[in-house]
Amino acid sequence: MHSLEFDIAHFLAGSMVVISLLLLYQDRLYALLKVFALHSLALTLAVGWQAYIQEAHHLYVTAGIALIFKAIVIPAALYRIVRRLGIHRTLEVVGGVGRDMLAGAALVALAILVMLPVTAGTDAVAREDLAFALAVVLLGLLLMVNRHNAVSLVIGFMSLENGLVLAAAGARGMPLAVEISVAFSVLIALIVIGIFLFRIRERFDSVDMQAMDAFRGERRR
């Protein structure tokens, strides 16, 4: 069914992958937060579009949750935390942007290579969605692995979770209760991480993970 509906779904899911790649080379905290808000906005649109073409009304709720929490509340909260804490605004990338982008491209290729053969025979929309969702998850993990800053760790985690929601929306018949509970758990995670950021900042004057490692009591010999 190569119709306009499919093309739009493809475009929205693909744009999430592109924005994930954008997240990878942001070297300023505010920019990172803004791109994450964009990421969540793309998720909202993708899920909303899925709701429209699948005629699954509960997905509108999911899209609403994504819009309110992920695109507005969470970036705003993190924005506030960063300002209140006065966190150093530039981010060091562990490897270097070029290497990161290459790894990201390889991960996208891997996700498509894995997903397309596995889901052969199912609905084309679901196939594309699943492949893109896996790519978004892997890119989120890469972001978590490659940064020293705790805030970018949080952003990586949140974008990873966006990928999960995308996968859930693409698969038909995912009950609403699951999505709501996932959204809720992300919110809880934000609260916990927020508290931790404050505490860490209080103790160590920094949210750089390398600085924290130096304080760990138990070191291996």
Binding site: L110, V114, L134, L141, L142, M144, V145, L153, R220
Partner: peptide, 28 residues
């Protein structure tokens, strides 16, 4: 294997990430 108990958060995450990528590569 005891030193696995004393890794940093980033190293743990890399471990998970690496394992995931390796498994996916295996499937592919």
């Amino acid at each position: 294997l005891n030193y696995l108990q004393y890794l940093t958060i980033r190293q743990y995450l890399s471990l998970v990430f690496g394992a995931l990528v390796l498994l996916l590569l295996g499937i592919a």
